[in-house]
Design a protein around this nucleic acid. Structure first.
Lengths: 139, 139
DNA sequence: TTAAGTGCAAATTATTTGCAGTAAG
DNA sequence: CTTACTGCAAATAATTTGCACTTAA
């Protein structure tokens, strides 16, 4: 883990006003340390932390992801009933869901164009439109 | 529950080659008895069955919904991490998800037009594109 | 008769929470 | 110091499963 990653994670936390604890700094570095977006589940992030030798409890990973969502640093994505995915990319964008290995990745949003969308029924408004492109590996 | 509903449910089961047990006939009548599509959760279907006085166990509702999906009579929809929805409408179509009360309904598919879609990364193909329009009730 | 379906209750899995201890401001 | 954070272990919630019993074919 390079200094850059730690620093990026730190400023990511501070911009949301979250107390930079050792655990949060470690997880933040894993999530945004390289400046790229990441899609994780609690378990996958927990595994990644363990791999880099950072001691964190699974409960804290859950609580931390929830906290990151609450302050608008991440967003929860639902594609598989059995577990939640968390995405560091806060922009509205479509996802690829690799059904074979349960992985979630960003789909290029400039390649998606919705020319017509059902209008919200009266009394309601559209909060968000989720587009999930489910992929099956060939053969 | 009119005879029509029971009959519709029965033929729905038989076209899939499922043994028409009392429980399945009852649930099928609730699901497709009026010829309209329905979106249920295991709990909501269980409640509906109880309401009409049909004795079914919750486990059987779960197993039955799973069986209906396995034979292609229904489709599982994932919009809320905490529970699964099941839809009798097998056509590709968008959904409205009412965030306030956790209800799922069909959105008019003729009002959705996707003019451009990200192509599948090499080595994979698109199995399905899920579009969920999340609604928030006004005020 | 016989394989499939049903219903409990117990098991699983993902996630949350209570609470005592630890650390950040 | 004081309040928020952490970690465990226990609690939840949705769903599945093992197994003895019932029923459709």
């Amino acid at each position: 883990m390079c200094a850059m990653a730690t620093e990026r994670g730190a400023s990511w936390l501070s911009k949301a006003g979250l107390r930079p604890t050792r655990q949060r700094l470690g997880l933040a570095a894993l999530l945004v340390g390289d400046g790229r977006n990441r899609h994780v589940t609690a378990e996958s992030l927990f595994a990644a932390a363990k791999e880099t030798g950072q001691p964190v409890s699974l409960a804290t990973v859950y609580n931390t992801l929830r906290a990151f969502c609450d302050v608008g640093l991440m967003r929860e994505i639902t594609v598989d009933g059995s577990r939640s995915y968390f995405d560091t990319n806060m922009h509205d964008h479509p996802h690829f869901y690799w059904e074979d290995d349960g992985e979630l990745t960003d789909a290029p949003s400039d390649e998606l164009e919705i020319s017509r969308l059902p209008r919200a029924p009266k009394g309601a408004s559209i909060a968000k439109v989720d587009v999930v492109i489910r992929l099956r590996r060939d053969e």
